[in-house]
Design a protein around this nucleic acid. Structure first.
Length: 246
DNA sequence: CACCAGGCCGTGC
DNA sequence: GCACGGCATGGT
């Protein structure tokens, strides 16, 4: 079994906030720049402790997922230990709106451009992601000029409906999914990513183009409930694994 | 030139 | 309810 895979957790499609600096990963979060080389760097910082969900036993979850079947065992052993991040709701909402019909590299680029255009510089060369208030000054034309394309009106609608994010907190999973999907550009896949990667709803099971291939080939006739109670984490391992094959 | 990327919307049936 | 085309952009 391989150990902690910080790269996969930070750069594998959960978050688009992190940069690979070579000797560390960096991100502007919580109004400041964080730089970490190792998961142990996060353990003594209260914000990062929550962000990396360090109170949850990911090693146990990993072992139980691996024990479910041979495919999951292969997936788990191929990628090392992955965590589910607890990100800011607003950042997750816009990030996964940007993600639709897009690839991770380009999503990261759009995230950076939005930050430089509408966020603020907290350290030379490091911009915060814009708040809903900061993004409210954006026009559809401006957003398109940054390259977001057809997602521009979705971002505008998200700004207008940002209060939904607070209401989602107390809702059961299905109702939370529905509430999020009342925002334009948010469908089942985007909504489940937001719930997993910022609300710690581990029953989410995002079905993107990669996971549809995995399910059709290795789990025909099955659905998310097969992976209970590790739907989200199993999905993350399978997603990482299938992408690493091609 | 085609086809794809952590999909969703609008339309038609 | 489900199937299908369209959609901005950049990479292969």
């Amino acid at each position: 079994m391989r150990g902690e895979n910080l790269r996969e957790t930070l750069m594998g499609g959960q978050s688009f906030s992190w940069r690979d600096e070579g000797d560390c990963f960096s991100a502007v979060l919580n109004g400041k720049v964080y730089r970490i080389r190792d998961i142990e760097d996060a353990r003594h910082d209260p914000f990062l402790y929550g962000y990396f969900d360090l109170g949850y036993d990911y090693e146990l979850a990993r072992q139980e997922i691996a024990a479910r079947d041979g495919i999951l065992r292969r997936a788990v052993e191929s990628t090392g230990m992955i965590r589910l991040l607890k990100q800011d709701h607003w950042i997750a909402l816009i990030s996964f709106i940007l993600s639709q019909n897009n690839n991770i590299k380009r999503i990261t680029g759009l995230y950076s451009r939005l930050s430089e255009r509408y966020g603020h510089e907290v350290e030379e060369g490091y911009w915060s992601f814009p708040t809903a208030e900061e993004l409210s000054s954006a026009t559809e034309e401006e957003l398109r000029s940054l390259g977001v394309g057809f997602r521009a009106p979705f971002i505008i609608d998200a700004v207008a409906k940002k209060d939904i994010l607070g209401e989602v907190e107390g809702l059961p999973f299905d109702e939370a999914m529905e509430a999020l999907q009342s925002i334009k550009g948010v469908g089942p896949k985007v909504a489940s990513c937001i719930l997993i990667f910022s609300y710690q709803r581990r029953e989410g099971f995002p079905m993107d183009v990669w996971m549809k291939k995995v399910m059709a080939e290795y789990y025909p006739g099955k659905d998310a409930s097969y992976f209970h109670p590790y739907e989200a984490l199993s999905q993350q391992y399978l997603f990482s694994w299938i992408r690493s094959l091609t």
